[in-house]
């Protein structure tokens, strides 16, 4: 207990730092995956290509991406930007599939009806297809959020401080409590972000409470990210 009492400031500082490092890639990843997912959904020829490239992104271990981005982009090895970019890449990789699946899950009769009522292509996307893809996209975004929070910890190996620092430092100094504190805080942050997303979903998609979640949504809810 001593360690915790003496290091409350450190834990707080690292937690805030952790949140900051996690939120930006989640937001960026979501924003970037929208046009990419839309392209993959809209044009059959681009679908195979986009989803294949994204499948390949998955196979890069995050640690490898952390260490390889600096020389590739010419940024500092210890730069936070490095971790932000790497995590954004993963967020896009995870999220694009959800965007594509969400758009594909919009019923054809709704689409026909919207066109017949005189929505322009642009208007139909934002007013009809995008909101209706919402539940599937939200399920995907929740996975992205939780996995990003987890992955931030790996940044410690390239010197980017986060709660991951408590893991390596705890192991070196042999303090179990330090590592456990890191785990608990990581989980708490993940669950808090998840809660924020769920609440946002409730507010933005009030109709959603009336349905049982679709098969796609349920599948995403049970998926689990690594790290």
């Amino acid at each position: 207990m001593n360690w915790l009492v003496n290091n409350l400031d450190l834990v707080l500082e690292l937690s805030l730092q952790h949140v900051r490092l996690a939120v930006l890639p989640i937001v960026l990843g979501f924003a970037l995956s929208l046009p990419i997912g839309w392209l993959a959904w809209r044009f059959r020829f681009s679908r195979g290509l986009v989803l294949t490239v994204i499948g390949l992104l998955y196979t890069i271990p995050s640690l490898a991406l952390f260490v390889l981005l600096p020389p590739a982009l010419g940024i500092s090895f210890l730069s936070e930007l490095n971790v932000t970019i790497a995590l954004t890449v993963y967020a896009v990789a995870l999220m694009t599939r959800s965007v594509t699946e969400g758009l594909a899950a919009v019923g054809p009769s709704v689409r026909v009806a919207a066109t017949a009522m005189g929505y322009s292509t642009w208007g139909r996307f934002w007013r009809v297809e995008f909101p209706l893809a919402g539940p599937v996209m939200l399920a995907g975004l929740r996975v992205v959020a939780v996995s990003t929070v987890s992955l931030v910890t790996v940044g410690v190996f390239v010197g980017v401080r986060s709660l991951g620092y408590l893991f390596t430092d705890g192991l070196q100094r042999g303090i179990v409590l330090e590592i456990v504190t890191g785990i608990v805080m990581t989980v708490v942050i993940a669950l808090l972000l998840d809660l924020v997303l769920v609440v946002l979903g409730r507010i933005l998609m009030p109709w959603q409470r009336l349905f049982a979640p679709s098969a796609t949504v349920r599948r995403l809810q049970t998926a689990r990210p690594a790290a």
Binding site: S150, T153, G164, L171, V176, I183, R224
Partner: peptide, 20 residues
């Protein structure tokens, strides 16, 4: 349970178990 488990950072789990 899966939801709770997926929030666990693997690196944390690895270090704490190695230590214990």
């Amino acid at each position: 349970l899966s939801g709770a488990a997926r929030a666990l950072p693997s690196l944390g789990l690895l270090t704490v178990l190695a230590l214990m």
